[in-house]
């Protein structure tokens, strides 16, 4: 299915797929009252609603998310940082989108606020305001608590995909394996444990190398890794982008861990 730019805007953006930007602090137009912005969104997607209906709908939604109706009448800079964050989440989900893409919604937040945001997102899922959530983050421990599935990307490509459980405890792709090694579990003996960094730096995306993009930093790289395009392999219910069979990789990992 292909959609024109205009169709994409009117049918999908905000309605089917919605978005929470990385810096919620600056995401709101500073000279527009919150309710005016919501009205503008509604004019695009639910033009049949009157202003009064929009107001009622917004109040109802904001109240279920513990935001008072007064917020609607405010300008963004009259709200505190945490309030802005929640307001942005409320606005992004006001049309009950099927998919909500949250772009690092917890970065730059302290742990308490992180928890509040996660709770809010879970609440939205439970209430059915959103059906699914794509949660983009660098904070791996958080992911396990939020998501069902995890997809790992490296240099602009998906390298592995599976359930949260599988990805964290049984990674297949060498990059995922290394990545999961960076999770610190606060338990006995951790103090003496050295965290392993991956040597090298990610490739420049303007001139990606041929073959596997991770090859240069991979301890298992062979000469075949640097040829052609590496396709995503399917293995049981998951997929990964590596030419080495999953079982072989696992063997290598087991061997290494000894």
């Amino acid at each position: 299915m292909t959609l024109g730019k205009e169709q994409l805007r009117s049918r999908v953006s905000g309605r089917e797929i919605s978005y929470i930007p990385q810096a919620a602090m600056n995401a709101l137009n500073p000279t527009l009252r919150i309710i005016r912005f919501i009205e503008d969104i509604m004019k695009e997607h639910r033009p049949e609603l009157s202003r009064k209906q929009v107001w009622e709908l917004a109040v109802e939604r904001f109240e279920t998310l513990n935001l008072s109706a007064r917020v609607l009448e405010s300008y963004p800079n009259e709200l505190s940082g945490g309030m802005k964050q929640r307001t942005v989440i409320a606005i992004s989900t006001i049309l009950n989108p099927k998919v909500l893409i949250a772009d690092e919604p917890t970065s730059a937040l302290d742990v308490t606020s992180q928890k509040a945001v996660i709770k809010l997102l879970k609440h939205l899922l439970e209430k059915g305001y959103i059906q699914s959530l794509v949660f983009i983050t660098h904070e791996l421990p958080l992911l396990y608590h939020v998501t069902d599935d995890i997809m790992v990307m490296y240099a602009g490509e998906i390298v592995e995909r599976g359930t949260a459980e599988q990805m964290i405890f049984d990674p297949i792709h060498p990059y995922t394996k290394k990545l999961m090694g960076s999770i610190i579990v606060p338990e006995e003996g951790m103090r003496g444990h050295k965290l392993a960094a991956i040597p090298g730096t990610p490739p420049n995306l303007k001139t990606v190398p041929e073959g596997c993009r991770f090859a240069d930093r991979c301890t298992y790289a062979q000469s075949e890794c640097r040829q052609g395009r590496i396709e995503l392999q399917t293995f049981q219910d998951r997929s990964y982008r590596c030419i080495v069979p999953a079982d072989t990789l696992r063997e290598w990992y087991a061997h290494e861990d000894e």
Binding site: G14, R15, A27, P30, F37, E44, I91
Partner: peptide, 10 residues
């Protein structure tokens, strides 16, 4: 940022 956000909300 608000321009991008408004765009993505359609």
């Amino acid at each position: 940022d608000y321009v991008l956000y408004s765009k993505l909300l359609g």
